[in-house]
Amino acid sequence: MTEKHPGRLRSLIAALMYRAQAFTVVGYLGVASFIGVETLIVLLGFTTVLPIAIPFVLIALGLVYLFRQRLRGLWARLRSGEAE
């Protein structure tokens, strides 16, 4: 079976890898700008203590960074509801 476009699968996989790496970089930058570089360094320093939790913590912090505007609005509504 001959392939009509040799290397097309390899190109698609490479494009997927580049996008995944770009998403990872954006996530780390988002987390670093949200919690600060020093805190990120301390957080990554805990990889010897509980290495399996670090990606999940970074993903959660990245999602908080991406949805921070909505979280601010939610927080403001909660605070105004408590004041009434």
Score class of each variant (00 low, 15 high):
2 T>I: 03
4 K>P: 14
4 K>D: 11
4 K>M: 15
5 H>K: 14
5 H>L: 11
5 H>N: 13
5 H>G: 10
6 P>N: 02
9 L>V: 11
9 L>S: 13
11 S>F: 08
11 S>G: 07
12 L>I: 04
13 I>V: 05
13 I>M: 10
14 A>G: 01
14 A>Y: 09
15 A>Q: 05
15 A>Y: 03
16 L>V: 07
16 L>R: 05
16 L>D: 06
17 M>N: 12
17 M>R: 13
18 Y>V: 10
18 Y>P: 01
19 R>Y: 14
19 R>G: 10
20 A>P: 07
22 A>W: 13
22 A>C: 14
24 T>R: 11
24 T>E: 10
25 V>P: 00
25 V>Q: 03
26 V>M: 09
26 V>R: 12
27 G>Y: 02
28 Y>F: 14
28 Y>A: 06
29 L>N: 15
30 G>E: 04
30 G>H: 01
30 G>Y: 01
31 V>L: 07
31 V>S: 04
34 F>W: 00
34 F>H: 00
35 I>A: 09
36 G>F: 04
37 V>H: 13
39 T>K: 14
40 L>T: 06
40 L>A: 08
40 L>I: 06
41 I>H: 05
43 L>M: 12
43 L>Y: 08
43 L>W: 10
43 L>N: 09
43 L>Q: 08
44 L>N: 08
44 L>T: 10
44 L>A: 02
44 L>V: 06
45 G>R: 11
45 G>H: 09
46 F>T: 08
46 F>P: 00
48 T>V: 09
48 T>R: 10
49 V>R: 11
49 V>N: 08
49 V>C: 03
49 V>W: 07
52 I>S: 06
52 I>K: 06
53 A>S: 02
54 I>G: 01
55 P>Q: 09
55 P>C: 10
56 F>L: 09
57 V>S: 04
59 I>S: 00
59 I>V: 03
59 I>E: 00
60 A>N: 01
61 L>M: 07
61 L>W: 03
62 G>S: 07
62 G>E: 01
62 G>P: 02
63 L>R: 03
63 L>G: 00
63 L>Q: 05
63 L>I: 01
64 V>Q: 09
64 V>G: 08
64 V>C: 09
64 V>Y: 12
65 Y>G: 03
65 Y>F: 08
66 L>C: 11
66 L>V: 12
67 F>D: 05
67 F>V: 08
69 Q>H: 11
69 Q>N: 10
70 R>G: 05
72 R>V: 15
72 R>M: 14
73 G>D: 02
73 G>K: 00
73 G>M: 01
73 G>A: 04
75 W>C: 14
75 W>T: 12
76 A>L: 15
76 A>I: 13
76 A>V: 13
78 L>Q: 02
78 L>G: 02
78 L>Y: 00
80 S>N: 15
80 S>M: 15
80 S>L: 15
81 G>Y: 03
82 E>P: 07
82 E>A: 14
83 A>V: 11
83 A>Y: 09
84 E>I: 13
84 E>A: 13
84 E>P: 12
